[in-house]
Amino acid sequence: MTYYLLRPGRAVQGPPMSDEQMQQHVRAIRRLEEEMKSAGAWVFGGRLHDPSTATVVQADANDVLTTDGPFAETKDHLGGFYLIRASDLDGALNWAGQVSALIGASIEVRPFVDELTS
């Protein structure tokens, strides 16, 4: 088993969704997440609030400096992620393909160094 982070890139901006469409979209995502769970691939995942809600903490030798986030230098702000397990990369790519089709963004699939401990 290998653990993978599935992290979306920037989404292609489509026309804004109606409430009805948004609800369908959310239901489709929930369905896929249920599939991940019943297949044993699901470890953790979630959506994040807007980057404007972030705080950045930086420790140096004497002090901890707290500032309004997010990181100023990052262009792509993480909107959410999945952490999954799969028997090999092909299994992870299969899930990533389904997520990509749903959210209309490319997905970076990246392995963890070791098995996760929880």
Partner: peptide, 8 residues
């Protein structure tokens, strides 16, 4: 990469 990403 083959090893780390577990390419089958």
């Amino acid at each position: 990469k083959i090893k780390a990403a577990n390419i089958p």
